[in-house]
Design a protein around this nucleic acid. Structure first.
Lengths: 267, 267
DNA sequence: CCTGGTGTTTGTCCCGCGTCAAACGCGCTC
DNA sequence: GAGCGCGTTTGACGCGGGACAAACACCAGG
């Protein structure tokens, strides 16, 4: 249908540019419920090691290194802030459990949700360049993170790994820019659901049935739409029997048609 | 006017999140015309060292290191491609002279310009995570880049430096997301011009008078607008005596009002 | 010089989505 | 259980900006 190389989907259909997933290809199913222990965490025994920062390192070379990595944890309750824009940067954070949003603000008061983050993803990379964070990160449910002091990230293997994670974040952002720049409202909502679906699947949860942790307002902000439009389009997906939408509970019924609703086309 | 911390401008007015600038704060004026020599380039004698990747390293520690860094160059003519989405990643590129656009495509044929790049900026970081590029990068005028083989980037200082550059790119993208997600057409065009203005200024060119290297279509794609809307709004800036617009030549007459046109407000 | 191609400007139309408004449902606390 | 508040849904309306179209400016080549 198009000359160039087939590339870059937000739909979960094909190649790279899976715009909202830091999860690695090879990441199988794994229960990510989060144990009860409150001792410092050892990477080698973490159930997220396949999707987290050290991911790939084991295969690479320094398995021992991963074994020895131990981080302190931090718990956050729903609504609490992990860090704020302007705050001094000193650590990265790996999400162990829970769900976060990140948010950027313009000085005139407008703000936008720039990402939603779940288990295994790395937060705080926006602070590396300037030694200060440029976003707020807020827990959308009770959550737990590993604190990774940046000064401690010296193993050369880790450096490479972090660069990979950052690079993937860049590619993810390009996907979001595509979404905001070229997609119509209906497509944005579909792409959003498909992205969540993929990411839940990569973490061992159902790809077709899940709970939204964020409000319509937050979805709208993320997608560059009003909350009413988001609500309307979710209702339409329900009407069209593509998904069952009951408040924050989503069940995708017809994944094929959901994917299809992205590639061009008026209702 | 707003509770939170004053942050994140796209306007050149204040703090971080200068959304389209990889240039460093301390980067003074420097003529970036590009010498005539065709020998391999030594970083220590490059006129872009203050805005390029090694920037900050000299101050940091390993000045010798920078002295010894030598890279091969590559020339591109207007319209030529530096790399394509899907191509194997092996090098980063530092822009020595000229002007580039990067572009992402969706498999249904839609594409979007995701960035414009000028002297001192680093291209190709999208490939680090997956060992393959996810964007096309194309020269908008005759240009020259330094080729930096990724495998060669091993000095720990360089690793840190690259992380900083990548982090800043992440923050820059957040700025673009804000633009695409929350700004009205008029604001987008203003923010775009202000961003260019800053970046030219950081490189020693005039902040108020410059040539656009890209077409209206490319600007529109970047800003999530149609080319007609871009044209109309540039005409309006001219009518309102905020800028003189003659084809691709821009002269900003009233920087204050241009900045003001971003913070909320109907025409 | 004229001619064709590409990029830009400007006009007209109209629809997608933002805005305003009202009613509803769920989960609090008391 | 009653009352309240936040989040969601649905409707009505209007406008910003996309789509289409036509005329114009600039440049290269014959």
């Amino acid at each position: 249908m198009n000359p160039g190389h087939a590339m870059n989907t937000l739909t979960g259909a094909a190649r790279p540019l899976r715009y909202a997933s830091d999860a690695e290809p090879g990441a199988g199913r794994l229960r990510a419920a989060g144990g009860a222990s409150s001792v410092p965490t050892r990477c080698s025994s973490c159930n997220l090691r396949e999707v987290c920062l050290p991911c790939g390192m084991a295969a690479t070379a320094t398995d021992l290194l991963v074994d020895e990595m131990v981080y302190t944890r931090k718990r956050l309750k729903r609504g609490e802030t992990l860090f704020r824009a302007g705050a001094a940067f000193d650590s990265l954070y790996a999400v162990r459990s829970g769900f976060f949003k990140s948010r950027t603000l313009l000085e005139d008061g407008r703000d936008q949700v720039t990402g939603f983050h779940m288990g295994g993803e790395i937060l705080g990379m926006d602070g590396i360049g300037t030694d200060a964070h440029s976003t707020d990160v807020i827990a959308l449910e009770d959550s737990e993170v590993c604190v990774i002091p940046y000064a401690q990230l010296e193993a050369p293997g880790m450096q490479r790994q972090l660069q990979k994670v950052m690079s993937r974040a860049l590619v993810r952002d390009q996907g979001l820019m595509m979404l905001l720049g070229t997609m119509r409202a209906e497509e944005r909502v579909a792409a959003f659901l498909l992205s969540l679906s993929q990411r839940f699947a990569a973490r061992g949860y159902s790809a077709t049935e899940f709970h939204l942790r964020m409000t319509r307002d937050e979805i709208g902000s993320y997608l560059g739409l009003s909350l009413e439009t988001v609500s309307r389009l979710l209702s339409r997906l329900d009407d069209d029997a593509i998904a069952v939408v009951q408040q924050k509970h989503i069940r995708i019924v017809d994944l094929t048609r959901l994917r299809a609703s992205i590639g061009r086309g008026a209702p």
